[in-house]
């Protein structure tokens, strides 16, 4: 190694590389900060933090230290800020998808399709005053099947760890019951989610109020979400 470095050509090349690397470090730092800001996932945040972080480079003395600062921001600030901005976006979209209060426009659209002969088709002239989830037989079924799953799975656990003694056929029956009630609970919950209905109280700008029952939303979920995504 020492022999190689003592070669004048190699020394010259290493010197050139070091000098050039130091010279391009500020440019690389700016590129790294640009990437760091772009990875935040929010256009407003990107614009703001890119300018803010570029101003930091002016404060930081030294060329290589500027690059270290930029890499530090890319590695430590960007992921946390990105998580924070992503969480905000997801919170809104989750509420829009799952929370009936935030689905007022989708519910109105559904009423308009079912009761167009009755209502003013201009959705802007209707205001949603109250949304209430209706009880259904699926709620009771889900409760019963989850209770059975709880009992069967606990019995299986106790027998499997020798806390209670079961004859082989009973142990087999308990394990089958635990599996079946677990699967049934998931199916019933999914079915209940898909067939969920609401009672929705709407008011027209001219005064009249209507309480509409059995408004279903979720069979319209995908078209509604696609429409939201592309508009």
């Amino acid at each position: 190694m020492n022999e190689m470095l003592s070669n004048p050509v190699v020394s010259l090349l290493v010197g050139l590389l070091l000098a050039e690397g130091t010279e391009i470090a500020p440019w690389m730092a700016r590129r790294v900060l640009h990437t760091a800001a772009r990875r935040l996932g929010s256009p407003e945040a990107t614009t703001r933090y890119e300018e803010e972080w570029l101003a930091l480079l002016e404060e930081r003395p030294g060329k290589l230290l500027k690059l270290i600062l930029a890499i530090n921001i890319l590695l430590f600030a960007t992921p946390r800020l990105r998580r924070s901005y992503r969480a905000k976006g997801q919170a809104i979209s989750k509420k829009r998808k799952l929370g009936p209060v935030f689905q007022a426009d989708a519910l109105l659209q559904r009423i308009r399709e079912d009761h167009a002969f009755l209502l003013d088709p201009d959705l802007g002239s209707w205001e949603v005053l109250r949304i209430r989830r209706e009880r259904s037989k699926h709620d009771i079924l889900a409760l019963v099947s989850m209770s059975m799953f709880f009992v069967a799975s606990n019995a299986y656990f106790l027998a499997a760890h020798d806390f209670i003694h079961l004859v082989p056929w009973a142990f087999w029956a308990v394990s089958v019951a635990a599996g079946m009630t677990g699967a049934m609970s998931i199916l019933i919950l999914m079915l209940g989610f898909r067939t969920r209905t609401y009672t929705i109280l709407i008011q027209h700008t001219s005064g009249p109020r209507i309480d509409v029952t059995r408004v279903s939303l979720y069979k319209y979920t995908w078209p509604y979400l696609l429409k939201m995504a592309f508009t």
């Binding site: 803010e52 930091l56 404060e59 600062l69 530090n72 921001i73 890319l74 430590f76 600030a77």
Partner: peptide, 23 residues
């Protein structure tokens, strides 16, 4: 204070300070 001044004052890397400022 600007971000770099805060990082200097607390003697922590700038990358650790910005998520806190954002919160």
């Amino acid at each position: 204070l600007h971000g770099f001044a805060v990082a200097k004052a607390v003697s922590k890397p700038t990358g650790s300070v910005y998520p806190i400022l954002s919160r």
